[in-house]
Design a protein around this nucleic acid. Sequence first.
DNA 1: TTGCGTGCAAAGGTTTTGCATGGCA
DNA 2: TGCCATGCAAAACCTTTGCACGCAA
Lengths: 140, 140
Amino acid sequence: MEHSRPAAYNTRQKERLLAYLASLGDRHVTVNEIAGYFRQGEAAVGKTTIYRHLEKLVNAGIIRKYIQEEGAGACYQYVRQNRRCREHFHLKCEKCGALLHLHCPTLDRTQRHILTKHRFKINTLKTVFYGRCEHCRDQD
Amino acid sequence: MEHSRPAAYNTRQKERLLAYLASLGDRHVTVNEIAGYFRQGEAAVGKTTIYRHLEKLVNAGIIRKYIQEEGAGACYQYVRQNRRCREHFHLKCEKCGALLHLHCPTLDRTQRHILTKHRFKINTLKTVFYGRCEHCRDQD
DNA sequence: TTGCGTGCAAAGGTTTTGCATGGCA
DNA sequence: TGCCATGCAAAACCTTTGCACGCAA
């Protein structure tokens, strides 16, 4: 027995948006880039619709949202689920934008520590460590 | 010999703002909270002035700025030189929105581990762990 | 007196919301 | 035929900037 979950229709905008995001590979896009892509050509998708779908997709773990500089828009990236994808954290370099995957037993222990000692269940799909990668640390 | 550094006057607004921030202890405040505090009572300090001082104070290392989410206002915290005001992570509950502060030696070790073994310098001012807090884990 | 500090108002940007219309099931 | 989805316009945010006036030194 389901709760009163809304119907969730399949619309062409939704399909196009998801197909576009999936086609990006590892590339990140901003809302403006997405809107720009759908502005040209026949298949228009408005910004309002884009924002509304992106929020749902982020919550569903289908795409990941990254915050950037203050004042600048967020950027989004498709999360590929196919590969043998153990739970892991992500490191995002604020300078060069590189996204690193952190498979590490130490982090697994940290995650369990936060769960047992701080009683907080981390969502690794949404959590992103921001900072400087090896190469960018040497510069400036 | 100094470079052409501007004069930097001491104004009452500046003194009041710094005194207020210092009085907060470990608490974080947003610009709105600061402005609200100075709105009531005689000693008004405008938001523009608050923003301008906060930027300087952050650059001077006197206060710390946390960027929690895009669009939402940043949080500021006084850095007490003498006492232990360690860097810390934040836990954000996806369900109820609660923001928890994670002061924990285990996390300090994790941070060092990521630095030495994975060669990534984490920015705790921007990094937020997303997940479920104790209370919201029990529900649904 | 000099010129930085202040703060109102307006602009800049991203994101959200109101509401009438469109389209899926 | 219901009712969700869409998207324009407008609002709601946070933050920055222009500019005239105030005030410290």
